[in-house]
């Protein structure tokens, strides 16, 4: 290897820009999401970073009556979503982490990636929640979709 190649090989691994000042947590209140919440808050604390907590509301617009009826029939889903954000808020307060909460709408993975880009997040933290059964077979999980399309590093936490 010539001198030039050596220099080039070294510059491939140039100094690391380890900036962890803005973390984004996506939570839906599921068990993996709550695990991810704890990691996110612990990391925000240790990095002295700000935390954006988002919940993606996947409900359709208000004129979709059939969807509204379904939602009335499944209040548990609603409770879980709200719980996810509330739990994150409680932990963030207790651990004195600087945070803000946002509810965004749309396709879950796309909304997470968009929110992270808008926030200029250095890291996305998510639980490997998501679709189950046939839907998962066809579409993959939310975390897989985020990992596939995100330019920002993604930390995926399993709920066990």
């Amino acid at each position: 290897m010539g001198r030039q190649d050596e220099v080039r090989a070294r510059s491939d691994f140039s100094e690391v820009d380890f900036k962890m000042k803005r973390l984004l947590l996506a939570t839906d209140g599921s068990v993996p999401a709550i695990m991810a919440t704890k990691y996110a808050i612990a990391l925000a604390k240790v990095f002295n970073a700000s935390l954006k907590i988002i919940f993606v509301d996947t409900s359709e617009d208000e004129h979709d009556y059939s969807r509204n009826i379904v939602m009335l029939d499944t209040p548990k889903e609603m409770r879980q979503s709200t719980a996810g954000v509330s739990i994150a808020k409680i932990y963030a307060d207790k651990n004195k982490v600087n945070y803000n909460i946002e509810v965004v709408k749309g396709n879950v993975a796309k909304a997470i990636i968009k929110a992270a880009a808008n926030y200029e997040a250095d890291l996305i933290i998510i639980g490997n929640t998501g679709r189950t059964g046939l839907k998962r077979l066809a579409l993959g999980s939310v975390s897989e979709a985020v990992v596939k399309d995100s330019a920002i590093p993604v930390l995926v936490i399993k709920g066990s």
Binding site: Y39, N128, G140, S143, E144, V147, K148, D149, S150, A151, P153, V154, L155, V156, I157, K158, S160
Partner: peptide
């Protein structure tokens, strides 16, 4: 390749350890 699932997806499925994924997107 994508439709068959990636190595990363398979790793995430087979471990309980947190996985940090870095993309070249």
């Amino acid at each position: 390749k994508r439709s068959l699932g990636s190595v990363v997806d398979a790793v995430m499925k087979s471990t309980d350890v947190p996985v940090l994924v870095i993309s070249d997107n």
